[in-house]
Simulated assay, not measured.
Amino acid sequence: MIITRVPLRMSFVGGGTDLKVFYEKDYGEVLSTTINQYIYITVKKQTKLVPDKFRIGYSKTENVNQVADIEHPIVREILGFLKINFPLEIKVMADIPARTGLGSSSSFTVGLLHALHALRGESISPYRLAEEAVYIELNCLKRAIGKQDHYAAAFGGLNKIKFMPDESVIVSPILCPRTIRENFFNHLALFYTFKTRDAESILKGQQRDTAGKWEILKEIRDSVHRFESILEGNGNFKDLGKILEESWQKKKTLHAEISNESIDKFYQKAKKIGALGGKLLGAGGGGFLLFVIPPAKQGVLEKELKGMLKVDVKYEPQGSTIIYFNEND
């Protein structure tokens, strides 16, 4: 039996430029971090005593005998991709609901691939793990999503991720002092809106409009360098908040469903309380709101944003990790 633990991520700037429709003509770039919220995936070889060849537990339970009959699209495609045909049980647990803007589907894809490679006695690099996860979601399932989340989940940490027109990807750690990183995280406040959304529907619309939004996307991409320079320099949180604010306002122009009246009201209330900037994580429409705000004002913010839940997060330096391995289980 093998258990993998895969972190979720928060993307600060550059989102949208990891879509192929953009980076195939120009390079894309994002800056993100993994956090201490996880998906756990357990895989276990079954004996021939079990009545069903494949037992898969997530928000529902599947018991089937053929890979083609598996309803969960990612599980079905991965088992087919790896040509796994032995009796197998898969169980999934998560700290955070799906479809909330923290990259959960990509983390799941990375974690299941990692676990199954290990079950076959194969080691795999973070880069190859991310590449395979991208192949499953974008090539096999034809999902209209970017590929930043797969690399964030596989590598872990606080990184700048660059997407080149030739499909190569460069992952570069942000070399900021530990004190600045810790203080930066102390200035972050994450709130759950209790609204889930389908990122793919928003991203499909965004991709259709890319040609007309090209200059805005370039500005969003170029904010990565500014954000990186501050983190690696003096760590001025007022400037970091301002960049998030500018980038969020530009991102809202990419598609009408990225924000809504309710989210905008919460955002403006946070600004009045003292937030230096912020954004809605993920493609938009719901999920989590992230603010840069002094720690002393976070208690007031939590009281005022009624109907939302504050989730405390910390920095996670590791990507997908095998936390349990027993070949005799």
Rank of each mutant, 00 (worst) to 15 (best):
Q37L: 14
K160A: 06
L49I: 14
G28W: 03
V224K: 02
L79C: 03
G14F: 11
P7D: 05
A118L: 04
G28A: 06
H187I: 03
K297T: 09
I35C: 10
Y151G: 15
S247H: 10
S259R: 02
M10P: 05
I243Q: 00
V311C: 06
P294S: 15
M93A: 10
I74A: 01
Q249T: 12
E89L: 12
V50L: 09
M308G: 12
F266W: 08
E327C: 04
E200H: 06
Y324P: 09
V171A: 03
Q46G: 08
A270V: 00
F288H: 11
K279L: 06
K265V: 04
F191I: 07
L31M: 15
D26Q: 11
K204T: 13
G235W: 12
K53V: 06
E62G: 02
I322Y: 07
P165H: 06
I90H: 09
R120M: 10
E167T: 11
G299D: 15
R76T: 04
L309C: 12
L203I: 15
G241L: 04
Q207D: 08
F185C: 10
A98W: 00
E132C: 09
I243G: 01
C176F: 11
I124F: 01
G103C: 10
K25C: 03
V134L: 02
K160P: 10
S201K: 15
I96G: 01
L203C: 13
P294E: 10
R208Q: 15
I174E: 15
R99V: 00
G121D: 09
P97C: 03
F191P: 05
H255Q: 07
P317F: 05
M93E: 02
T4H: 07
A199F: 04
K83N: 15
K195C: 05
V224F: 02
A275M: 02
L129R: 00
G277Y: 02
P294G: 08
G285M: 14
I243M: 01
A283H: 05
G241Q: 09
Y127I: 09
P173M: 05
L188Q: 01
E304A: 13
H255E: 07
L112E: 03
L254A: 10
T253G: 12
F227W: 03
D209L: 14
F12Y: 07
R99M: 10
L8F: 04
T47W: 03
D166A: 00
G282A: 05
L102R: 01
G14I: 12
L203W: 02
D312H: 06
D18W: 11
D18K: 09
F155S: 00
P177M: 10
R197I: 09
K195T: 11
D26H: 14
V43C: 07
Q37C: 11
S59A: 09
T33N: 13
G233L: 07
K142V: 08
S168M: 14
E200I: 15
Y127D: 07
N63K: 05
S11Y: 06
T196F: 05
I41K: 02
V43F: 00
P294Q: 14
W248C: 07
